[in-house]
């Protein structure tokens, strides 16, 4: 990587930190968001130029651009059209696709390298797909609850604790299997179990607690993105992901405090194992 590229990524990281800081206060919040957006554009342009220079086939960039066009149109349309009352579920939806993208990046790299994958890459990829999988479905359920597509009441189905423990067991066992023998089908099983755990984690929580849950899942996505950074050896992803993971955790606590709730009480809301899923793999 050239010095110019590295300095560009550094400038983007600074923009993210200062942008978040400016968003702490009403007077500077909008400027903070614009600064953060400028950092994002800079980081993406640097990476895109690098891809354009080094690409051997055109298929990758063409497929990438097609996906970008669809995502940009969909994201912009939703962001403009959704009424103000629908903002929290929209943020949750964007968080879901972010977590899904983080998981897919690790899967793509895993499929490409498989079966000659080192332990370091495997561990990062496993953490990425597990956290990303939980976030993807958990955020979709959270958005559904706020939108009224999923009941806002806590869903307390019988045996839910056993189901959650079983899913965690599948994730852990699958992760160990993948670590010992690099293996794409078992990785898919791990992802499916993590995704099912995301559903089982959010369903028992009441609709009123959803903002706290969305904030926590937002922090999860940040962590998943940082893990994707370890998979791809990308410092920009590691810094931005870790930044969101940590600041999102603090924000989750602030939001819970503002509602006179503890994060643990929110997560337990009729549910025994809390957020042990992602942690259990680490």
């Amino acid at each position: 990587m050239s010095a110019v590229e590295q300095l560009g990524y550094l400038a983007a990281a600074v923009a993210f930190v200062l942008g978040l800081h400016l968003m702490n206060s009403p007077a500077t919040a909008r400027r903070g968001n614009l600064l953060s957006a400028a950092g994002m554009v800079l980081a993406l342009v640097i990476t895109a130029v690098r891809l354009a220079r080094n690409t051997e086939t055109m298929t990758g960039p063409v497929v990438l651009l097609a996906g970008v066009a669809v995502g940009a149109a969909g994201g912009a349309l939703l962001a403009r059209r959704v009424p103000m009352t629908g903002m929290p579920q929209l943020v949750s939806l964007f968080n879901a696709v972010g977590g899904g993208a983080a998981a897919l990046v690790a899967v793509t790299e895993y499929v490409r390298l498989s079966p000659a994958i080192g332990a370091q890459t495997t561990v990062s990829a496993l953490l990425d797909v597990v956290i990303g999988g939980v976030t993807f479905t958990g955020s979709l359920i959270a958005a559904g609850k706020l939108q009224g597509w999923v009941t806002g009441n806590p869903v307390l189905f019988p045996g839910r604790r056993a189901v959650s423990v079983g899913l965690v067991a599948i994730v852990v066992a699958g992760a160990v299997w993948v670590l010992i023998t690099p293996n794409v089908p078992v990785l898919v099983v791990v992802i499916v179990a993590a995704a099912a755990f995301g559903v089982a984690m959010v369903l028992p929580i009441g609709g009123a607690d959803m903002p706290v849950v969305i904030s926590l899942l937002n922090a999860f996505t940040g962590t998943a993105v940082a893990m994707a950074g370890f998979v791809l050896n990308s410092v920009a992803l590691i810094i931005a992901g870790a930044l969101v993971g940590a600041s999102g955790t603090i924000l989750t606590k602030l939001m819970a405090d503002a509602m006179n709730r503890s994060v643990i009480a929110v997560l337990v809301g009729g549910f025994g194992t809390g957020d042990g899923g992602p942690a259990a793999v680490g």
Binding site: A29, M40, P88
Partner: peptide, 25 residues
């Protein structure tokens, strides 16, 4: 500012798009 700040942090982890560009290559 809680919700806007959450949304702002949410946008930042969209940097995963950079990772997508890398794997696309």
């Amino acid at each position: 500012l809680h919700t806007p700040l959450m949304s702002g942090a949410n946008s930042i982890h969209g940097i995963i798009l950079l990772g997508v560009v890398i794997v696309a290559g």
